[in-house]
Amino acid sequence: MSEKEIKNLEEIFEQKIARDEKIEPKDWMPEKYRQTHIRQISQHAHSEIVGMLPEGNWITRAPSLRRKVALLAKVQDEAGHGLYLYSACETLGISREELYDQLHTGKAKYSSIFNYPTITWADIGAIGWLVDGAAIINQVPLCSTSYGPYARAMVRVCKEESFHQRQGYEIMMTLAKGTPEQKEMAQDALNRWWWPSLMMLGPTDAESVHTEQSMKWKLKRKTNDELRQQFIDQTVPQADLIGLTIPDADLKWNEETGHYDFGEIDWDEFWQVVKGHGPCNHERMSARVKAWEKGEWVRDAAMAYAKKKEDKKLKKAI
């Protein structure tokens, strides 16, 4: 392709983005756009799959049948999200096996929040309320992102996430209204999950390397700091309502800005966890690798069986 032709394609592409039209898998796209999307969509898919582990940790111990069924359904939804996000990613010309390989070898990242342990039942409430709450804030703008398959997947993901968030908040509310032990359990979970949830919205704008390009492609519509402020403003009144205290001594409503001021985030901790030194990084990855390796003979059997069936059909046809 000549330089002129490429330039022409680039222009068409840019115009489409400017007009808020979707880019579809068969459309021409710059290589960097493709790579950025593979990175972000797969990171998102991996987060869903790894995110199943901390919550799955409580399925067998859920305190009531109703909670057990709800948690199972929630974790299953996450598997579903993983499935359609991997499919969306595959439309960019990469296979699921390659994507798994990137996850298992540590080349691809997933949301760092899942490297924290779930040590009490209240953590399941806190994850739903805070982690899914932060995820929704991150994800709602993606429903109108430029890449069609991703945007469409996100519409469904967001609907389910907002259901999960309400469910998590309801767990916290029940605990906060319960016995002193239950309330303490809820407060303790909030104390442990609050700061990692704020970190989940990404490094500050000054540190964020991808923001500018991603804003241009509408892969991002608000900066990390804007999203974080939105999350805090939305969540603080929810904590007040159920009588739990946000673990931040500097948290204060600011009349002038119309937002909450908040204390400093420990970014050293954030980068430590991102780099693999969180409390459960190793456990999460080895659980994923183990499931994949132990499942190999099963996947092989399914392939071999399908081939045998196909061969038989062919023979008959001949």
């Binding site: 799959i49 199943m52 582990l53 799955g56 399925i59 067998t60 057990k68 199972l72 974790v75 299953q76 598997a79 579903g80 993983g82 499935l83 991997y86 659980a287 183990k290 499931a291 132990k294 499942g295 190999e296 099963v298 996947r299």
Partner: peptide, 15 residues
Amino acid sequence: LSELCGHGPNLETDI
């Protein structure tokens, strides 16, 4: 079966 959630041989079987 609940013990297996998140640990299946692939996503489809897990689900």
